[in-house]
Design a protein around this nucleic acid. Sequence first.
DNA 1: ATGAAAGCGCTAACAA
DNA 2: TTGTTAGCGCTTTCAT
Lengths: 339, 339
Amino acid sequence: MTVRVRIEDVARAAGVSMKTVSRVLNNEATVRDDTRSRVQEVAKALNYRPDPSARSLAGRKSYLVALLYDNPSANYLMEILMGVVEACQAHHYGMVVQPLLYDSPDFVETVISLVSFSRFDGLILTPPITDSVELLDRLDELAIPYACISPKNREGRIGVTLEEHDAVSDMVAHLVSLGHTRIAHIKGHTAHGASEWRLAGYRAGLRRTGLRYDPALVIEGEFSFDSGVRAGHVLLDLPEPPTAIFAANDDMAAGVMSVAHGRGLRIPDDISVCGFDNTPMSRQIFPALTTVHQPTQDMGRQATLELLKAIRDPASGEMVRMPYALQLRQSTGSAPRRP
Amino acid sequence: MTVRVRIEDVARAAGVSMKTVSRVLNNEATVRDDTRSRVQEVAKALNYRPDPSARSLAGRKSYLVALLYDNPSANYLMEILMGVVEACQAHHYGMVVQPLLYDSPDFVETVISLVSFSRFDGLILTPPITDSVELLDRLDELAIPYACISPKNREGRIGVTLEEHDAVSDMVAHLVSLGHTRIAHIKGHTAHGASEWRLAGYRAGLRRTGLRYDPALVIEGEFSFDSGVRAGHVLLDLPEPPTAIFAANDDMAAGVMSVAHGRGLRIPDDISVCGFDNTPMSRQIFPALTTVHQPTQDMGRQATLELLKAIRDPASGEMVRMPYALQLRQSTGSAPRRP
DNA sequence: ATGAAAGCGCTAACAA
DNA sequence: TTGTTAGCGCTTTCAT
């Protein structure tokens, strides 16, 4: 490998000082246009790239953001990650992936010591980490920039949100328009804000269409396929079972469908099922699952962009609202006629 | 935030020189045991952690490995990633995720410039990036350590492999033991070594059980659900359709199952289907899919361990063979009696 | 708008 | 076995 090109080499070749090259590199304003372009040309010709470690040491910046998560679904995390990476690449930041144990007793301390020692310029938080008030307060104290993806509380935070409440309400209204009147709901894991929003959206959907809320039709779940299976059995064992089931995510919906198939029920002729997330799996099961699409990758990207803004200027960055869309497929249909 | 503790502070508190502290930190042998433990205690008491940038700048090491990939399935990558992160954490390395375009004309140059400028201490390569002879040669020239996950060619490489050939052969033998004699195969994407191994394993399985290889029963696929759907239609439209289908991965198997369901065929009564990968989805579709389990996360972890060995000592590191297992579920059963 | 000098916190090379 | 000195390549601070 040839010897490394340093800032000094660029400076000499361009006939300016190191500091001027540095200014050009960092897009500082106080450089004359012709000087700037000359330096840029020379840097390009020499194939110069600053050394990250040196930059980082001298400038007290790492050009690194960390993605913090605790045991989310693989697809969700993967899509978020892709979005974060995309935004980071575009802005010459690196991304480090950091798994965490949200339920661990020293969770907050772990994160704090992590960020104090690794010098991340900022953090991307995913649920449920977004909801540790204690952690967020500590980060604020330490003035460490962070962006939240779908936090429970959006006040004064930056990141992205999605009106899950409205999405679910729309979905319920759609089921009602198909003639369903007994619509069940399988709740998500209690630790997640999403579970609350989706339940509230379900109730809002019923209210909006004039249906009564029946607690017997609402079952606890925890976002897993197995919990969907359990809930499916409970619901289908009911004396008067529902004709439609809205599960708080696709995995649980798949569990319900599996139970229905196992009992010889036809979907959607005998029972309609829908979920939330629009995972790749939702398109691959039979029949294809009606669900709510959330632009997960874009959410990762947007959250990162807001974070980078906040890193540049702590006063900036906002909470961006992302659009949702109902993804209607074959797992929902008209309510069966009851004898 | 309190002021940062530096190596100098530790040295003073322990009554030794900075260099001695440095030696302890880097596990160098030439330190007396009592000195070592004293320094360690002081470092711990002061809650000292070395600054990564400074270490990196002075030592020409980044303590960073990069995971290189091109558009794999989300689940596969996620599991690999978890394994890599796990191993990295344990050894105080950071991991950076790097998406790449394998088909791009300047693919090799992109990677080379990436690694020359970012100073990664090593790389984890996933298929099909593992199979760019040109890239691997360049990396060897530059003496950049890398580990391969499931490379086509294992000679002289380090990383992990799995005997996919044997796994598939076993699976075919299992189908034969269930009475199947017309067993079809849907191939994977041509760029991947896995496609070759799985096809070869299929042929070996037939040979081993005395069945004839029938080219009409082998269909092109590309690892996607949709390609599985297309292949499924072709196979079931055959004058004498197969009674069992081995798809080269789970996504394509799901596509076949969807076609079968759509045609009113019962699985496994009318037709058996099996896949490869044991994705979470394979357990969630109905009926649950028989497939080959490969310990993906462990493969990521092991590959990383080999990489870290090679980073420490370029002469070390090997190709580790990982175990597979048939995961028998409900999508396969006895061959139907033909009239 | 530009430059000179002094570090950032650590390790390499050498010395003792 | 331990310590001293001189950087690593960049940005900061302060001049001009």
